[in-house]
Design a protein around this nucleic acid. Structure first.
Lengths: 111, 111
DNA sequence: GCCTCATATCGATATGTGTCAATATGTAAA
DNA sequence: TTTACATATTGACACATATCGATATGAGGC
C-alpha cells in the first residue's frame, strides 16, 4: 500500500470520530488547555488524553507545555496538508492512467 | 453528541482507510465499474463491496446500475460538503463562544 | 425456464478502537 | 522533600470494523 494514502488518510481517520471533530472545532477558536477541553465532555481524563494524542500524531494539532498544563492548538500546516490531500484524491487529473496501473502507482502519486 | 459532528465525520471515517482513499482517487479520474476497481486490489469481491457501500453511505460516492454492472463515481455534492465541513471546523470563527457553551452548542453550529 | 456472471449480503473470525480505573510522570507549591 | 495537581501511560474490557468464504439476489443470454 502506497505511503501517500496511508499517511494522507491518517488525518481523516482522526477526524472520523465525532468527538475529535468537535475538539478540532473548539480549537479553531484558539488555543485551549486540556483541562478546558475536558470540562466540555463527559469523558475521563485518560480518554481525552488518548484523543489528543491521536490528533497530534496525525499532524492536525500541536501541543505546548507550560508548567503542568498542556495547551493544544490547530496546526496551520496540518490543515493545509489535509486540504491538499483531499483535493489531490478528489479532483480530476489529466492523463489519468489509473486503469493501466497498479494501485501503488495510481494517479501520478509520488511516494 | 451533535448531529453536525456525527454526520460530518462520517466521510472522514470512510476516508480514514487508505484503500478507500485510493479508491476515491481512482474514481476522481472518472466513473469505474466495480470489477475494474477489484482488479487493482488484492481483496475479495465481498470486501470491496463492503468498502464501496461505506463510500456511498457517507455521500462521497454514488452508484449507478447498468445491466448486471454497477458503476461508481464521485459525488460533486459530497465533495463540496466535505470541504465545507472541514473548513467549518478548522477556520477561525469570530465571536467564538466555545468556552462558555456546552459541546452540543459549540461554535455556532446549527444542527 | 435454466445457466452464467456481477454484485450484495450473511456468518464467522481476527484485529482495531474507545473507554475507564489505576498508576506513572512531571511540575510547582508548601 | 513532601504534597497536590495536570497530564500521560497501562491494562482490561466491550464494541466496532475488516476480512473471507459461502450464499443470495438480480440481470441477461441460451
Amino acid at each position: 500500500m502506497d505511503k501517500f494514502y496511508i499517511e494522507g488518510s491518517r488525518v481523516f481517520k482522526a477526524l472520523g470520530d465525532p468527538r475529535r471533530a468537535m475538539i478540532v472545532d473548539m480549537l479553531s477558536c484558539g488555543e485551549l488547555c486540556a483541562c478546558m477541553i475536558l470540562e466540555k465532555f463527559a469523558m475521563s481524563q485518560s480518554t481525552l488524553s488518548h484523543h489528543m494524542k491521536l490528533l497530534c500524531e496525525c499532524g492536525l494539532v500541536v501541543s505546548r507545555n507550560e508548567g503542568k498544563w498542556t495547551y493544544y492548538s490547530l496546526s496551520a500546516e496540518g490543515i493545509a496538508k489535509t486540504k491538499q490531500f483531499f483535493c489531490d484524491i478528489t479532483s480530476n487529473k489529466e492523463n489519468c492512467i489509473c486503469k493501466e496501473l497498479n494501485p501503488d502507482q495510481c494517479c501520478n502519486v509520488n511516494d
